[in-house]
Design a protein around this nucleic acid. Structure first.
Lengths: 156, 156
DNA sequence: ACCTTGATAGCAAGTTACTTGATAACCACG
DNA sequence: CGTGGTTATCAAGTAACTTGCTATCAAGGT
């Protein structure tokens, strides 16, 4: 059978493979593996990403998280409210008043995100098996620069 | 207002940013830009990827394309049939018999995919503005290796 | 001949992770 | 006091998948 990874020739003008396309493909692969692994912990990849961001930041609101993840406030709110109902996070009104609710991980949420981390560690170990340390850091750096260049909000 | 790009401190144990997460974020950004640009040409990102693959390969069937893109045959079939109805591709029965239909780009499909290429060129130009040529090739190479490592089908 | 096997195309329904649009609460400002 | 900005939340819709099923076609085994 034809190898799905190799172009298999037969093209009049051969356009080079786009980096964007490589990003799409890799994202699909990681997500498929991660969805599968996280299902055993009862969370989705989207939820895991929100939980990770909550651990990293200082009690952001749902709208803050939406800006971070480049999604609409409504989309993030659905995720956050679901996580709250399942006891993985809790939300308190902002001390300075206002309508914003500051979200934090509960102990249960923290232990969940730690278990998910181990699942992702296993996937990245496979993914990076043939990649040396220098190439990994170069990859992370370049990906960060690319994402920053495509930001909609113009920043310094 | 908080910068959504920087972690903004305040975390007990600071876990390092995962490469997977960087891939997810960049994919989201590229897709948002590309969906927007391709809408003017009347195709979606998914359709554009299928059209690109059709230009690169020698008249694959819908099932072939599904394997290439890591989706189910049904999912790819929906895309292919829609593209056929819109006259961007045509399908002929396989000369060796069988049920498979070999898909090819029509002239209209080819000109469409070329116009889409220019849209993607513009996006990648922005994305790579601060990235030198060596880092770009290193990025492409590492992404390819990572995707290959996560393949479900074991190949040499 | 007959029947399974394997690969394909196609239909139907359901899911996930979003989207836009609208409503309402809350604060600060002029 | 009203006006604008930010937030949460409800409602409906969409893109891009998924699983499950059926039907067609060719090749191989008995």
């Amino acid at each position: 059978m034809t190898d799905p990874g190799a172009p298999a020739a037969a093209s009049p003008d051969a356009p080079p493979t786009r980096v964007s396309y490589l990003v799409f493909r890799l994202e699909r692969r990681i997500r498929a593996c991660l969805d599968d692994a996280l299902a055993r912990h009862g969370v989705t990849t989207t939820e895991y990403m929100a939980l990770s961001e909550l651990r990293l930041r200082d009690a952001p609101s749902s709208a803050d998280l939406a800006r971070i993840a480049f999604v609409t406030p409504q989309a993030m709110n659905l995720v956050i409210r679901d996580l709250e109902q399942r006891g993985l996070i809790r939300r308190d009104p902002h001390p300075g008043g206002g309508r914003a609710l500051r979200a934090r991980l509960t102990p249960k949420g923290l232990s969940t995100v730690r278990r998910c981390d181990h699942s992702l560690d296993a996937i990245e170990a496979v993914m990076f098996a043939e990649i040396d340390h220098q190439a990994r850091t170069a990859l992370a750096e370049t990906l960060t620069l690319c994402a920053r260049a495509l930001r909609p909000d113009t920043r310094p």
